[in-house]
């Protein structure tokens, strides 16, 4: 029994049944009038609207556009954030000077600065990507620094005893040892990035799924709006599944 409860198949089927259960519950609550239909559409209507969304609203190219902006932004936060985190680890004075500011940046509503970015980059994907990268940078910088600082001194001493160069020490010991914490940072950063990409698409009415949600909401097409949000969730899930696979491949540690 315990083995069955711990199995992957049980976990997946529980997840599926939960989603279906919530849909059925919502359907019932909406039909008996317990929830206002003008706020939440019937799940059955949302499902029915999928065909319309796919064929009439050109959903695949919109998914592709959002996925492109997310991919570039997600890659950029790693390429920019991890080295900055490593620099802050190495230079103590710089870390003391700026790490609190970086943490404050994570809490700042940067999305409100979109007019400034529109002036600099125009109403384009570049604006969406740049703003999303800036929004997602803080967690990965903080977690990279934190991860490197938390490397157990004994591992560093092993490296010293083997006369590792500074570069070898970083690539062979510090970075792999800090990897679990860095991946926590990546997960947080990517969450910020994914929200930011769709949010800014919505806000400046440009691009993929965010713009579609905006359009459908303005047309008061509630089932379509919710179906589009479903596509955003699917894209996000794909990103995080890929990240999990990469993490397991890089570091198969329990």
């Amino acid at each position: 029994m315990g083995k069955l409860l711990n199995s992957r198949a049980f976990a997946i089927s529980t997840g599926v049944f939960t989603v279906v259960g919530v849909f059925v519950l919502l359907e019932v609550l909406l039909r008996i009038g317990a929830i206002n239909k003008y706020i939440v559409p019937l799940p059955s209507q949302v499902i029915m609207s999928l065909e319309r969304i796919i064929f009439e609203e050109n959903i695949m190219s919109r998914v592709a556009e959002t996925a492109y902006e997310m991919s570039v932004s997600c890659a950029a936060v790693i390429v920019i954030g991890v080295p900055i985190g490593a620099v802050l680890y190495k230079w103590v004075a710089l870390r003391r000077a700026v790490l609190d500011w970086v943490a404050a940046m994570a809490a700042a509503p940067l999305v409100l600065a979109f007019p400034l970015f529109l002036v600099m980059f125009g109403r384009s994907s570049t604006t969406i990507i740049v703003m999303s990268v800036i929004t997602g940078l803080a967690p990965i910088i903080i977690k990279t620094t934190e991860g490197l600082l938390a490397v157990r001194p004994v591992l560093i001493n092993v490296g010293k005893s083997l006369k590792l160069t500074q570069q070898q020490m970083f690539w062979k010991i510090l970075l792999p040892a800090a990897m679990p914490t860095i991946f926590s940072g990546i997960r947080l950063s990517w969450t910020f990035v994914l929200i930011s990409v769709v949010g800014i698409e919505f806000l400046i009415n440009l691009g993929g799924l965010g713009q579609l949600i905006n359009d459908l909401a303005e047309r008061y097409d509630l089932p379509g709006t919710y179906a589009s949000i479903g596509f955003v969730i699917v894209v996000s899930v794909i990103f995080f599944v890929l990240l999990e696979r990469v993490e397991t491949w890089l570091r198969p540690v329990k």
């Binding site: 004994v154 001493n157 010293k160 005893s161 006369k163 062979k172 792999p176 040892a177 990897m179 540690v253």
Partner: peptide, 28 residues
């Protein structure tokens, strides 16, 4: 400084958790 003639074994657990036994031992 550390000398190549001296091999050190530490009190704390010092295997690299991201490497297999073979890769740990082959590291030097």
């Amino acid at each position: 400084g550390p000398h190549k003639a001296v091999g050190m074994v530490f009190q704390e657990e010092s295997t690299f958790p991201w490497r297999s036994v073979m890769d740990n031992v082959a590291f030097p």
